[in-house]
Structure formats: structure tokens, C-alpha cells
């Protein structure tokens, strides 16, 4: 529960030299908090940009304001099988090139509309057994997992559950026949 806090303090180990010598991660520092993933600072920044495209800030805070990328990485690190972790990180690693090839620009340089389209189309990619197909499958897997955890991490955040749609620990006596027209807004928390 304190990992996100710990992250702020120690964040980094020097990347890769001993662990994965032939990998270009050596240029980028690896985040120690997610020991199963070997995610770099720049990859986490990219994940932040993707999650913030999925749920952007506005009058109400967005995914990045609520540290949703940390939640995504915690879930993938702790709750995914090794196989799915590998698919997720492969998809994350392949995503910058995919953006460049598909949209002709770096992801960061795209307009909001273009980013949204790229992500939406990416979630619908269908993979196969060819090297290209495997990469497509990984990108789709990465984007769908990211979207799912962005929604979960955002909706189950302290901010949303206290300030926007308050969660009630004590939901009150049961009423088994409430007319929907009598309700102002559907209850979704507690």
C-alpha cells in the first residue's frame, strides 16, 4: 500500500547494465518499484500520456492527476502472470514505433484527436503467429490492459470516491422496488 509513496523517495536503480547488458534500456533508468517489469522512466511517462488520453483532465481531474499510471504498473507487476507481463511490456515497448508508423509522428506530437484514434484503433488490432502479428497482438493487449486499469484505477481512486461519486460504507436499509424516475442519479458506489 505504501509502494507509491516509496517510489517518490527512491524511484530508481541504475538501469540494466548488470541485468540486461545487451538491451538499450541502459540508456534509460529502470524503475525499481516494479521489479517484475523493467519499465523505464520514459516508458512510464508514455504510459502516463496514454492513460491521460483515455481519461483526460478537465473540470474534473484526469487519470494522470490521480497517479493512475502507478496503479496500472502495480497491477501488472503484482497481479499478472509472467506471460501476460511479457505481453504487456512488449506492447509498451513496441508502441512508440507503432505510433510513428501509423500516425507518422511521435505519440507526444499528435493532437488529442489523433491520440484517441491511435489508441482506439490499437485496442482493436488483431494478432496472428507472424512476427508482425505477434507485435500487433502485444500492442492490443497492452492498450486494452491499460484502458481497463485506467478505468478501474480512476473510478476506484480516493478523489472520485470521496469528491465526485462518494462511496458509502453504510449504504442504508434495502429498498427492493425503487422507481427509477424517483432517483436523481444511478448509484454506483456502495
Amino acid at each position: 500500500m505504501n509502494r507509491r509513496h516509496a517510489l517518490r523517495h527512491i524511484a530508481l536503480i541504475s538501469g540494466g547494465l548488470a541485468l540486461i547488458p545487451s538491451c538499450d534500456f541502459s540508456k534509460d533508468d529502470i524503475l525499481a518499484a516494479y521489479q517484475n517489469l523493467k519499465v523505464t522512466i520514459s516508458q512510464k511517462a508514455l504510459l502516463g500520456a496514454i492513460s491521460d488520453t483515455i481519461i483526460p483532465a478537465g473540470e474534473i481531474k484526469g487519470a494522470l492527476n490521480l497517479e493512475v499510471p502507478d496503479f496500472i504498473l502495480v497491477m501488472v507487476n503484482d497481479c499478472f502472470t509472467k506471460e501476460n507481463q511479457d505481453k504487456f511490456t512488449a506492447g509498451l515497448t513496441a508502441f512508440p514505433d507503432y505510433a510513428q508508423k501509423t500516425a507518422g509522428k511521435k505519440f507526444e506530437s499528435l493532437t488529442t484527436k489523433e491520440k484517441e484514434e491511435l489508441i482506439l484503433n490499437g485496442t482493436k488490432l488483431e494478432g496472428d503467429d507472424t512476427p508482425e502479428g505477434i507485435e500487433k497482438g502485444n500492442i492490443a493487449y497492452f492498450l486494452n490492459s491499460t484502458k481497463r486499469f485506467t478505468i478501474q484505477g480512476y473510478m476506484a481512486s480516493e478523489y472520485i470516491q470521496t469528491e465526485i461519486i462518494p462511496y458509502s460504507l453504510i449504504p442504508g436499509e434495502y429498498n427492493g422496488a425503487v422507481l427509477i424516475t424517483d432517483l436523481q442519479k444511478p448509484r454506483i458506489n456502495g
Binding site: I54, I55, G62, E116, K147, M155, I180, K185, P186, I188
Partner: peptide, 23 residues
């Protein structure tokens, strides 16, 4: 349950999530 359309991304998705309206 309340049905939320999560097909989109961006502001449309956010609005759907925060203003569930369809049972």
C-alpha cells in the same frame, strides 16, 4: 446494474463513466 458504455476513449469515455444513466 448500471450500464456504462466504455467503447470510446477521451472526454466521451470520462463523461460516460461519471454520468452513468442507463440501466
Amino acid at each position: 446494474g448500471v450500464r456504462t458504455n466504455t467503447e470510446s476513449v477521451g472526454m466521451e469515455l470520462k463523461n460516460n463513466l461519471l454520468n452513468p444513466s442507463e440501466y
